[in-house]
Design a protein around this nucleic acid. Structure first.
Lengths: 328, 328
DNA sequence: AAAAATATGTCAATCGTTTGACATAAAATT
DNA sequence: AATTTTATGTCAAACGATTGACATATTTTT
């Protein structure tokens, strides 16, 4: 059995109450006793049982992270940053890969509740608003509208696509396609398509939307991209994520199209990984680390002041154009 | 406050004991009562408090995953697979990004202990054997020797590099370099260098080792690779991971070397991501999903039969050569 | 009709920790 | 020397669920 409070008390020659008081710094305590207790704890390598503590009302210091998965480098970097920041603040993280699965996400929510997490950072959103509202837990959301009382953090999606379109225009493109999800669901990411359409009007070019969904298989995406390139002859493609942009580059190569001469491509996300291992790709970089910092900050605020009114519901962080050779 | 046992009992019109019995299927129970209780649980959306249950000695159904991080696609895919498999078996996962940090890893171990995890899957190894032995927890390890009583799962590292070398030889290479970690620490991955050296002897070529560490920065890696390509003029490079292989391809392009004509490159890992987004790269593919399945299977065995003697300490799974254009 | 099996309830202890109430003793302040 | 402050101890009740002991019905089987 693991070491417990009574063992520490015995070793230190004090009562359990005193040990507990030392740990929780509660009531009067002499330096001598504190020292005795701390050394006993060290010698026995004592770790208070989180479960028992939190039954008493103490916080579990546990956060649930719900994301579609971590194989997309964007989510991998975001989740890793969030975990690191939380760990530094003494929090632990339960990882939930919800994929595109409603039932799995619902099961995760129940499980997180049963495990007394202090809060949730949600970046996957297969469920309706209702199930999130009913939780009665501090939640913050990345890039999706979950419910009226859940703050959202996102990058400046509108400005990002505006940058992208302007970059292509300045590089001389005339047939600029939008490649991404075309469904508008009331989420911040809807601004990407909005920005594209507005800029088309503004800059007077004809909008062309080629629709691929996040959940489409690679084969399907490749097919769609192949058809677009072959039939519609775009000279510029704005992609709503970097991975899709790379598929475009690969299909272009197969078709013998020269990038950037025949075709210019720009992505979205700007992860370290893509910038390192696909350094040719121009992209719109989301400030991943800042997003992570803000998500954590807002969540911890909600946790420590649950009934405090939210002054701001939507936090928009700036994006950066990273120009490379695919739009040279 | 969350719904608890007493609330369910009241709603169902039975005693708490009965509700607990229904949940744990313990003792005599009529279908009628079971039904009453289950409907009450559903109506109230009741979730038993895991903490309280596991104070009673029930398992937390919680597993700690210790890995260097998840931004490397190999670990991302492995961790995601492990999580999915565990979730399907009713387990939850605490994510630990140990990086290259001894202290962080130690802190994670303490934390996992305090949170009463049922076991640990370890893929990061900054710590010595001792700290892992002292845990008194079921552990399984990926690719590293942790301790005499911790089973190891790894791919067939030796065969992998042997495949790689043979592939380069068959493609006509004569100056084949090994690019990776050259330190031997008693881990299964040591077999990679061993295989290279043995094959050099066997096939009668001069071994050249270019050392880059997993923890080196990208800049440093690039510099090392640049020098190797420029000074030593290899015509084939065996890399111990795909990401490094891609750096080689990028540096080669900068130097105007034609791949595969002037230089052939082969990687190691074979993640879905690299195969999709760097489909040009020849590589040795680890069976990631099978590794995940086996790690979980072994861990759950250790958890359910903790004192059962281990019949086998090292599980080696086969690798596959995936031939593409960088070794054409 | 008696015996056995099934079904439910009451009560209390337990898991490890926290915390308030209360007692008491030593040290510091008047 | 009297009073206040500081330091520690004892005791017991929580937190929410589990489970064994025991009692008492209600069914089912002989």
């Amino acid at each position: 059995m693991a070491i417990k409070l009574t063992d520490v008390a015995k070793k230190a020659g004090v009562s359990v109450t005193t040990v507990s008081r030392v740990i929780n710094n509660h009531g009067y305590l002499s330096d001598k006793t504190k020292h005795k207790v701390f050394t006993a704890m060290k010698e026995l390598n004592y770790q208070p049982n989180s479960l028992a503590r939190s039954l008493q009302g103490k916080k579990m210091k546990l956060i649930g992270l719900i994301f579609p998965g971590i194989t997309n480098p964007f989510f991998a970097e975001l989740v890793q940053d969030i975990e690191s920041i939380l760990f530094a603040k003494g929090y632990k993280v339960i990882l939930c890969n919800a994929q595109q699965n409603k039932e799995k996400e619902r099961a995760y929510l129940r499980m997180l509740l049963a495990n007394q997490v202090d809060g949730i950072i949600a970046g996957a959103h297969n469920l309706g608003i209702k199930e999130y509202q009913e939780l009665g837990l501090p939640i913050v959301s990345f890039d999706r509208k979950l419910s009226d009382n859940v703050p959202i953090v996102s990058c400046d999606n509108y400005q990002g696509i505006k940058f992208a379109v302007h970059d292509l225009i300045q590089s001389g493109c005339q047939r600029i396609f939008f490649l991404g999800n075309k469904q508008l669901k009331g989420n911040p990411t809807d601004q990407r398509l909005r920005a594209y359409l507005n800029e088309a009007k503004e800059l007077d070019f004809i909008p062309h939307i080629c629709s691929v969904a996040f959940s489409d298989s690679i084969l399907l995406k490749n097919m769609t991209i192949h058809e677009m390139l072959q039939k519609d002859h775009p000279d510029g493609v704005v992609c709503t994520d970097d991975l899709t942009a790379i598929l475009v580059l690969q299909e272009a190569r197969k078709l013998g199209l020269k990038v950037p001469d025949d075709l210019k491509v720009i992505g979205f996300d700007g992860t370290k990984e893509i910038q390192t291992y696909h350094s040719e790709l121009s992209t719109i970089a989301q400030p991943i680390n800042d997003i992570a910092i803000l998500l954590v900050k807002l969540l911890l605020q909600r946790i420590s002041h649950p009934q405090q009114e939210l002054t701001k519901m939507h936090y928009i962080l700036p994006v950066k154009l990273i120009k490379s050779t695919t739009t040279a």
